[in-house]
Design a protein around this nucleic acid. Sequence first.
DNA 1: CCGCAAATTGGCAGCGCTGCCAAAAAAATC
DNA 2: GATTTTTTTGGCAGCGCTGCCAATTTGCGG
Lengths: 332, 332
Amino acid sequence: MELKQQATVTLAEVAEAAGVGESTVSRVLRNHGSFSGKTRERVMAAVERLGYVPNRIAGTLASTGSRLVAFVIPSLSNIVFPDVLRGASAVLEENRYQSVFSVTDYDPGREEALAAAMLAWRPAAVMLAGYEHTDGTAKMLRASGCRVVELLDLDGDALDIAVGFSNRAAGRESAAFLLKRAYRRIGYVGHDLQRDTRAGKRFSSFCETLEAAGAPLIAREILAGPSSVENGRLGLERLLARATDLDAVYFSNDDMALGGYFHCLAQGIAIPSQLAIFGYNGLDIGRAIPQPLSTIRTPRVATGEIAAQLIVANAPPQVVDLGFELIEGATA
Amino acid sequence: MELKQQATVTLAEVAEAAGVGESTVSRVLRNHGSFSGKTRERVMAAVERLGYVPNRIAGTLASTGSRLVAFVIPSLSNIVFPDVLRGASAVLEENRYQSVFSVTDYDPGREEALAAAMLAWRPAAVMLAGYEHTDGTAKMLRASGCRVVELLDLDGDALDIAVGFSNRAAGRESAAFLLKRAYRRIGYVGHDLQRDTRAGKRFSSFCETLEAAGAPLIAREILAGPSSVENGRLGLERLLARATDLDAVYFSNDDMALGGYFHCLAQGIAIPSQLAIFGYNGLDIGRAIPQPLSTIRTPRVATGEIAAQLIVANAPPQVVDLGFELIEGATA
DNA sequence: CCGCAAATTGGCAGCGCTGCCAAAAAAATC
DNA sequence: GATTTTTTTGGCAGCGCTGCCAATTTGCGG
């Protein structure tokens, strides 16, 4: 167990120590090509003795493809993205891929810069959220020759692979559900829709559905900043101050909806008789509150898993609709 | 705006197109060394025209250090880790570093394998959770010569840099708080402590403090699987079925505590008069429920930020205690 | 024991870039 | 205008590994 120096051990040194050629060491370590059992042992012994750690930088440069998948995601605060990462990284790690990520903070310009930085690592695939990219980003991705996966949205044209579900459909079904339940005076509490374009799509098709049914949205409250429980609470408070006669409120997602739910609890507003609440995402916590939250459960982890599987399998360009599930719950 | 082929543009081609040498292109692109204004323009024009994206694989191999930081984290479900990643990645991206991550699922063996895989990318630093690593992991990290940051725990010996707070102190202060509030019949609901050693440390010092005060823990309920709101609810239900005379329950974290809180809400158990609830983490949602959760707020994002800053600044080995804040709340 | 096919093995040229060094050009000095 | 100094530039040897190809060894049938 001698201590190693700073100087890193190279494959050549292992070859030397094992008394074999470099390519033999390479073959043994990658278990690729043919070599005898005793050679294998000698090499492994030398690897162990020297504490050799292969240099994948060099390996990737010398070979063609990298086993690197780049994620360019809007946020880590919004639970959606850690969930997607979780699903994807489980599959990727199983297949000995590595995940690199960066966070755009919902800024298309940053997305472009970060996508460029990721591309510099010549990843096997780039995964990003949705379809809204700058022209520069799209051009760059197309030119890169690496696989591109757009996640969590299907309302647009895919560059290569898309995995997710339709946010427009989610908005539409949410509205249809509330209408079916005979709510007619409906409001909305949301976070920044300029940035979160998927929430924006849900909202606009939600509104269209209401209008088509002759019960247009009565009032809305849009809060600056990211979605959060506190913003949901605050948003509902403000909305109700302006529009006292609402019978249902649609929230941009479950975080916000929970905030609204707690506001009602604290204010003694009866749910759903006095006010109905509907969310989006299907967070676990929504099922654990006294009245399960009415919401739409989205396949976030599965989105990551499927996306990763398609990349690992080098599947052809395609659009995979994983759908979503409307959870009736008890708040609407 | 001609379309590029699959074949990637190399620096040599840019040099050719710009009518300059390779090293000149390299200098211009990295803005390092000297070159004239017109050379710069010629190079940039060629870069633009050819759609050149530098190959950082090659660049890193040729130069010495990489601007890559590897995260080896136990989980992405536990909000702690996305929060740490968020803090760290913001700082790292600002400094043009890239983040690679992998998820160990709280398995030390997997941690070792994944750490080895990360080391193969010769990162500038490896960040991992806590101090509990296999001998193999520790040896490998020490031998690697790259910076190592251990996060979210200070109860042990750091390999290099450690950033976080003491989980033992957190457990101790939680117990002290409950004792000060005159609770004496205290129970515990937690998730798998074998795996989450930081939760284990909190729990053991919590118990020690209770014992020292002559009010040892009455009952505990440990659930298999990860922490979750639902498990917290279930855990409290089970615990109360066995121990009916508790006056307070300490939860392994806020997720679990919220589950317990909702259980009480649903069962009509008055909080805190009939039963007090104390959590750990200081999630936002804990502040938005009708009675703010009594808990300990941990500096998760700051832990990531500070860790990243130390790496960017190439700071000497050190232990940074960021402390935590006890939130009295209204549930205990 | 020989000949031929199959299994092993080593040598070495890159992969695309950076870093060093010397050459060339430009600027400054006498 | 000659010389020195400074700035700018290009050439090229690697970084550590993989992939190709040729050389060597081994296995087998006759």
